[in-house]
């Protein structure tokens, strides 16, 4: 089990985070740039020294600093933590083979990694002769070759194109299952969350806003900031009276006991469905005008300018996806948060 409870002051940024991950969990860390994802990973890996707190993996104490206690600090080289970032950090003066074997004392499973990551043809090349995707595969292989008990991933595939990112993500998932390590992965790619992660922690302004199993957190964001980090669309609304909301010119019933005043309605673009007429209170309906539409292979996508303000992209049918169409959209599950 990984236990993290740290306060970090780093380059004018402060982070206060508390997280517990069971062995074998795959945690996604989401949040906007500057929310503290990378700092959290760095403090777990030992790249940044927290001001106080504790980091422990199972019975191995990486760091502890409390009032009146002697500081405990385990050097990076003894932590058995894999760390991977966008830079890959491959050694440019070594071949792929030498990079893969760099931290390995027993190379019994190197051949298996080479095969799983399809690196056989690259072994005698230098990192400068590799493409971005190849470098990422080698870096992933080198990190896993030392059989880390904890894998820290700081958006390692963010610079790659979508299909490569997806392929490497799937590969990562398979390898993680194979090597049974706990993973913490900072990501901006919200598609990766349900596909790869078992758990998610939402960070904002150096704090963990919400943490738990992916399905639960995605289905019930704890607040407007958490919802935004999870890919929800936020729509400013007014609550004219309890049980009602006003979106732009529309006033409609909404099952909420929120007091009158300004509020934010959060809905996920994946839940949007184009409707011919208003639905019931369980499916709040908003209206808008299609201003960009694309139809392809029996499906359509349109960018909808909402009458209540803002834009959303949603999947629809090719007939509806034409410019200038006025459409009503059912939000599916939506949440009303204070402004």
């Amino acid at each position: 089990m990984l236990r993290v409870n740290v306060e970090v002051e780093y380059s004018g940024f402060s982070l206060s985070a508390d997280l517990t991950a069971a062995q074998g969990d795959f945690w996604g860390l989401v949040g906007s740039s500057g929310s503290g994802k990378s700092t959290l990973l760095a403090s777990v890996g030992g790249l940044v020294q927290p001001r106080r707190g504790e980091v422990a993996l199972g019975d191995r104490l990486f760091f502890r600093r409390r009032e009146g206690e002697r500081r405990v600090w385990m050097p990076l080289s003894r932590r058995r933590v894999g760390y991977l970032s966008q830079e890959n950090d491959l050694f440019p003066h070594l071949t792929v083979r030498q990079n893969l074997a760099y931290g390995v004392t027993d190379d019994g499973h190197l051949a298996e990694l080479v095969s799983l990551l399809e690196l056989g043809d690259l072994l005698d090349r230098r990192p400068t002769d590799l493409s971005g995707g190849q470098k990422s595969r080698v870096a992933l292989g080198r990190t896993l070759a030392v059989q880390p008990r904890l894998l820290l991933l700081d958006e390692p595939f963010a610079a790659l194109d979508w299909s490569l990112r997806r392929r490497l993500g799937d590969l990562l998932h398979r390898l993680k299952e194979r090597y049974r390590c706990t993973v913490l992965m900072a990501t901006h790619d919200l598609e990766e969350l349900p596909r790869l992660c078992s758990h998610v922690a939402v960070l904002d302004g150096g704090r963990v806003l919400q943490a738990g199993e992916v399905a639960g957190v995605l289905a019930a964001p704890a607040g407007a900031a958490a919802a935004a980090a999870l890919g929800y669309h936020l729509l400013p609304v007014e609550v004219p009276a309890a049980g009602w909301i006003k979106i732009g010119p529309q006033t409609m019933p909404y099952p909420s006991a929120r007091e009158p005043g300004k509020a934010v309605l959060a809905f996920h673009p994946a839940g949007l469905r184009v409707r011919s007429r208003s639905g019931g209170p369980a499916d709040t309906v908003i209206t808008g005008r299609v201003n960009v539409a694309v139809g392809f292979a029996g499906t359509g996508w349109c960018r909808l300018a909402l009458h209540g303000g803002g834009e959303v992209v949603l999947e629809t049918t090719p007939e509806i996806a034409s410019n200038g169409t006025e459409v009503a959209v059912g939000m599916g599950e939506a949440f009303l948060f204070p402004d």
Partner: peptide, 16 residues
């Protein structure tokens, strides 16, 4: 020499 490469070496379990 990028310090991150030295850090990568330490993280791979190698001594300073």
């Amino acid at each position: 020499v990028p310090a991150r490469l030295e850090r990568a070496s330490l993280l791979l379990g190698r001594t300073p």
